[in-house]
Write a protein that binds this DNA or RNA. Structure first.
Lengths: 166, 166
DNA sequence: GACATATAATTTGGCGCCTTATAATTTGAT
DNA sequence: ATCAAATTATAAGGCGCCAAATTATATGTC
């Protein structure tokens, strides 16, 4: 089996010349990236039979929790993509009959996006399936493990946010 | 500031109904994904001025460690992308003068990809810069922290690999 | 009431990546 | 020696995503 470390060993040559500290940091970074990309791919494979990408799935998931519908910009923000992207995702979802777009009566710039009955059904089924799958990935993790993992990841996230502002 | 948890809180509604254990698992999963995607975006922004994507950068980086050049399929495997993808990345790198493709004398199916002088230069400069940046993301992490983080990430990775085989 | 400004959604153009199909070449079994 | 199978690289088509530009509508100010 290829470990995460092995997968990126080629990229670590440079760090090795710089001492243990940098090596550990680069390794950790690649581990996070490689794991996320593995999760993404597995996820994409799971969703492909439904013509859904991860982005579309998240939109369905979000809409499920907005029974009275939601605006594209709101969906974009919650899903973490741009408004331009959300337009494309909604196009696909509409084409496949999962959602409908409806003009807002009071502000004609606005749209209201709603799940179709079919969308409801798929969202419910996949939501259930998906959360079970995610659960299985972290099977065997204790609450203690999460208490350790979460703050570490969040520390990097925070650094990154500060970084970006500059 | 938006924390990783907040970012995905909307997605956690379902998990909340299923108890603490599942909630922690989904949270952790989203934290990994969100962090990786934040790193990817920041990385893309850093590389954009050089007309480089993360994929292209990794190819440059790999080539730097193959002084006698490398084959596309080898690069694809080490970079973790498909051969089809590597062709596109090499196209871009060749167009921008960072690499050259050369036919292998003994097997005419094969190519040898090499860095151009310009490619060497950029690879060296960016490699240095990039590893310093990654280091800065994990600034303040102790060796102890990595000893905890790494096995946790690798456990999920392992589960995922087993998953895929099935 | 007119005009600048803000906001909503979309369009456009681009890149990365994937999957599937194709073409060229080599290898291996018979 | 021949022909099927494997391997190499590429092409084609598609989706997701982004940034920047565009269009339509609303709002606030003078």
């Amino acid at each position: 089996m290829v470990t995460l470390e092995q997968k990126y060993c080629a990229l670590l040559g440079v760090a090795q010349e710089k001492g243990q500290a940098d090596l550990s940091k680069m390794k950790a970074c690649f581990e996070v990236l490689a794991l996320a990309s593995a999760i993404d791919r597995a996820c994409a494979r799971r969703l492909a039979p439904y013509q859904l990408s991860e982005g579309k799935f998240i939109v369905l998931f979000l809409l499920q929790q907005m029974p009275q519908g939601g605006a594209p910009n709101e969906l974009a923000e919650r899903a973490g993509v741009t408004r331009g992207t959300i337009t494309g995702l909604l196009d696909g979802l509409e084409r496949d009959g999962y959602i409908s777009r409806q003009q807002d009566a009071t502000d004609r710039r606005r749209l209201i996006v709603r799940l179709s009955p079919q969308g409801e059904e798929v969202a419910a089924k996949l939501g259930e399936e998906h959360s079970r799958w995610i659960g299985s990935l972290f099977e065997g993790f204790s609450e203690e493990d999460f208490k350790v993992l979460s703050p570490l990841l969040n520390r990097v996230w925070k650094t990154l946010e500060e970084d970006d502002v500059i």
